[in-house]
């Protein structure tokens, strides 16, 4: 079913000093699909995204839009259409919501695109709450609004691949539900999504394909419907596996 991968990583390894944190990860994201990477805390999910985005040095091959990236630089990847919404959001707290969004379009502006006003209207259509708060400083937003702003800011870059790191982190269930509905809707606009989540059930419900990461390696992968029913997923999370032995 994976016909044209927009992102393909092969044998990705990342080390912190002398300690290897990711071991030979292989993963594909097809155009227009949602692929999720789930797994418990400390499995290496954030490390993996940081490596793909060029924030961390890594070994292995990263192929984006059919091109193997030799010189992985964040700025270059952003210009090519890859964006990351990081776990910590990394908003510009002392700037307004509107300025935060504008900066999302920086790389396109630099290359001559001047349609940031139109893109912002689209983002506001997706997140009406941001429009209400457009003049407010990002640092004064609530947790859910911050997440919306982080996603909205990423959309300003008109990405071809959107990577989301734990969008549900620290959010109340109702907001999580809202965010996940929006992510599911984004798929319809044609953007491919790589979704890293701890919240396994929610992630598997909206994803087409899933990987389970455990202690730095892929432990399981498959169609998300099958993974959702796999008892091993539950074991990974609640540690019921050990009891049975």
């Amino acid at each position: 079913m994976m016909t044209t991968p927009i992102l393909e990583i092969r044998e990705l390894c990342v080390s912190y000093g002398k300690v290897e944190a990711l071991h030979h990860i292989n993963l594909k994201v097809a155009a227009g699909q949602i692929v999720t990477v789930i797994g418990p805390n400390g499995a290496g999910k954030t490390t993996m995204l940081s490596a793909i985005m060029g924030l961390l040095p890594s070994k292995g091959e990263i192929e984006f839009q059919g091109e193997v990236q030799r010189d992985i630089e964040v700025e270059h990847l952003v210009a090519m259409g890859m964006t990351l919404v990081p776990e910590k959001r990394e908003l510009f707290g002392e700037m307004s919501v509107e300025d935060n969004l504008l900066l999302g379009a920086f790389q396109r502006y630099r290359h001559g695109d001047r349609d940031e006003g139109k893109t912002m209207d689209q983002v506001f259509a997706t997140f009406p709450r941001l429009k209400e708060r457009r003049a407010q400083l990002a640092g004064t937003l609530s947790g859910g609004e911050r997440q919306m702003l982080a996603v909205g800011r990423a959309l300003m870059a008109k990405p071809k691949l959107l990577m989301l790191d734990e969008p549900s982190l620290g959010l109340a269930p109702l907001i999580v539900r809202e965010i996940f509905h929006i992510i599911a809707d984004l798929k319809k606009t044609g953007v491919a999504i790589l979704l890293v989540e701890q919240n396994a059930r929610a992630a598997l419900q909206i994803a087409d394909y899933g990987y389970v990461l455990e202690t730095g390696s892929v432990a399981l992968e498959g169609e998300s419907r099958q993974l959702a029913d796999d008892p091993r997923v539950v074991e990974t999370y609640l540690g019921l596996g050990g009891k049975k032995q």
């Binding site: 985005m53 924030l55 630089e73 964040v74 700025e75 952003v78 210009a79 964006t83 990351l84 990081p86 990394e90 908003l91 510009f92 707290g93 002392e94 700037m95 900066l103 999302g104 920086f106 790389q107 630099r110 800011r153 870059a157």
Partner: peptide, 13 residues
């Protein structure tokens, strides 16, 4: 100045 990582993720090197 506010957030270096955030800026890099926007393509501001």
């Amino acid at each position: 100045a506010i957030n270096r990582v955030g800026a890099r993720l926007m393509g501001i090197s």
